[in-house]
């Protein structure tokens, strides 16, 4: 599990609390104002992780031994585990870098929480900004045109989607990034890691050397814009004749540009072996079904 889940780490606790607080407030507020379904889902996505994490923490059946990755000590980030013989694990992220941690607790969230609290205070105790009635009846000289009023009246609209996206990015920023090495195979699982984490990985010579050997890539965050940086695809990801598998769990939804077309086109120049969950005939009918089984088999030669 990522270090941000470590109950013994105070920084991790702070980040998790900030994220849940924001997720909760955002979800309540969005429901209250009747926001668009896709935005509510985005907020709910951050919430639902809680339940999943509970299971992970408690173990599916009994006491699982948990490790929080990567270790703070840079030298211990490549290791083996008894349960996976023959596999070397490289834990590349999430980063401990200050700027990455800042993104895990986005400032937009803090200001939004305050707005929500102020809004609640207003509803409980509605009062005009000034004692007494200072309203001017009619239109004063220099009044605004209808279009201008519309701009002023609309201030703050759409803030929720910005905050929802920031929260989504923050939650994804805690993604565990692993590379599993077995024989000649290098399997890269970047989770939904965002720019900050990627940036730290791409700045590390040892990690970039490993990334160049990737034989299997799980494309992060449904193939969205910011989960797979262009320098990684352009400069590090192997090209033919080297072999590469790529897998992306994705579905087009509403007006979201997911998966990102440019990314899919770029990946196609690296390999023909791209498995897309939304393009397997008969596998999915428009929506993901929990527990629906979806298997693509391939063989890994050691």
């Amino acid at each position: 599990m990522p270090w941000t889940e470590d109950p013994a780490d105070p920084e991790a606790r702070r980040i998790r609390e900030a994220q849940s607080r924001l997720a909760l407030a955002l979800h309540e507020e969005l429901t209250r104002i009747g926001a668009a379904a896709d935005v509510i889902d985005l907020a709910a996505n951050a919430l639902s992780n809680e339940a999943a994490m509970q299971t992970l923490h408690a173990g599916f059946g009994g006491e699982a031994v948990r490790r929080y990755l990567p270790p703070r000590d840079r030298r211990k980030r490549t290791f083996t585990a008894d349960c996976l013989p023959g596999v070397t694990i490289h834990a590349m992220g999430p980063s401990f870098d200050e700027s990455v941690i800042t993104n895990m607790d986005p400032p937009e969230g803090k200001s939004y929480l305050q707005l929500v609290a102020a809004g609640a205070a207003d509803r409980k105790d509605p009062r005009p900004p000034f004692p007494g009635d200072w309203t001017y009846e009619g239109l004063p000289a220099g009044s605004l045109s209808a279009e201008e009023r519309a701009i002023v009246d609309g201030i703050g609209e759409g803030d929720e989607s910005v905050v929802a996206a920031a929260l989504d990015g923050a939650v994804n920023g805690t993604s565990l990034v692993l590379m599993l090495q077995t024989g000649r195979n290098y399997l890269l699982f970047p989770g939904d890691a965002q720019w900050g984490t990627w940036n730290m990985i791409l700045g590390d010579a040892e990690w970039t050397a490993l990334l160049k050997k990737t034989t299997f890539l799980k494309v992060g965050h449904h193939g969205s814009h910011n989960a797979t940086p262009r320098p990684f695809v352009d400069d590090l990801l192997p090209r033919p004749p080297r072999e590469l598998w790529a897998m992306v769990s994705t579905i087009q939804r509403g007006s979201w540009p997911i998966p990102k077309k440019e990314l899919m086109t770029a990946l196609a120049t690296h390999t023909k072996r791209i498995v897309r969950s939304d393009q397997i005939p008969g596998a999915l009918q428009g929506v993901f079904k929990p527990r629906a089984s979806l298997c693509v088999e391939t063989e890994i030669l050691a």
Binding site: H221, S224, H225, N226, A227, S255, P257
Partner: peptide, 19 residues
């Protein structure tokens, strides 16, 4: 512009016609 795009979480959800 690339850097702004990749660090802006909202970019992932921005409709194509507004990009």
């Amino acid at each position: 512009v690339d850097l702004v795009d990749s660090t802006n979480p909202a970019a992932a959800y921005m409709p194509e016609d507004r990009r």
